[in-house]
Amino acid sequence: MRKLSIGDLPDGGTPATLAAIGEGWGPVQRGGISRYDTPGHRTHPESDHHVHDVPEIFTIVQGAGALELNGVAGTRFAAGDILIIEPGENHHLISDGDVPLVFTWMHLSRPTD
């Protein structure tokens, strides 16, 4: 897992820059935006084990919380943070801010030869 802030991006976070964060992988395969209103909400409630075989990039738009990574909650995040989850990392976002947690998520695609 890597954590950046939007301020770390040289051009403010264009799609090209966001794809470059996952250098060596293909372009964004799919993505979306999510909102969780309740403090303590844990993403991916359908399973205690949530992994991908490609990187996933979260951009925190509003709110705050902690990242649970491989069963350990600890990495704090807040609006303006970018979390890059590596393939195989079991991950969940847990909201705990005073306002709803809003974030974008993107799965990169497998590299093309």
Rank of each mutant, 00 (worst) to 15 (best):
M1Y: 12
K3E: 10
K3A: 14
L4H: 11
L4I: 03
S5F: 02
S5P: 10
S5R: 14
I6E: 06
I6F: 02
D8G: 10
D8M: 09
L9E: 01
D11E: 10
D11I: 07
G12W: 00
G13L: 00
P15D: 03
P15G: 10
A16E: 13
A16G: 13
T17M: 03
L18C: 15
A19N: 14
A19M: 13
A20T: 10
A20I: 03
I21S: 06
G22N: 05
E23L: 09
G24P: 08
W25E: 08
G26H: 06
P27Q: 08
P27S: 08
S34T: 10
Y36N: 14
Y36C: 10
Y36Q: 11
T38S: 07
T38R: 14
T38G: 01
P39S: 04
P39V: 03
P39L: 05
G40F: 07
G40W: 01
H41W: 14
T43A: 06
T43D: 00
T43S: 13
H44K: 13
P45L: 08
P45F: 09
E46G: 12
E46L: 08
S47L: 00
S47E: 00
D48R: 15
D48P: 15
H49F: 15
H49E: 04
H50Y: 11
H50E: 06
H50T: 09
V51I: 10
H52D: 04
H52Y: 05
D53E: 09
D53Y: 13
D53N: 13
V54S: 01
V54L: 01
P55Y: 10
E56R: 11
T59F: 13
I60V: 12
I60G: 05
I60M: 06
V61A: 01
Q62I: 06
Q62N: 15
Q62R: 15
A64H: 08
G65L: 05
G65A: 08
G65Q: 01
L67T: 04
L67E: 07
L69W: 11
N70A: 10
N70Y: 12
V72R: 11
V72S: 11
A73I: 04
G74F: 04
G74V: 11
T75M: 12
T75N: 10
R76T: 15
F77M: 07
F77Q: 03
F77V: 01
A79Y: 04
A79L: 02
A79D: 05
G80F: 12
I82A: 07
I82S: 04
I84W: 10
I85P: 06
P87L: 03
G88H: 08
G88W: 09
G88E: 03
G88L: 09
N90E: 12
H92G: 02
L93N: 04
S95C: 07
S95D: 01
S95Q: 02
D96Q: 02
D96W: 00
D96S: 08
G97S: 06
G97M: 04
G97P: 07
D98R: 14
D98L: 09
V99C: 04
V99W: 05
P100K: 00
P100R: 00
P100Q: 00
P100H: 04
F103Y: 14
F103T: 01
H107C: 12
L108W: 08
S109E: 13
S109G: 15
P111I: 11
P111T: 13
T112A: 13
D113Y: 15
D113Q: 13
D113H: 15
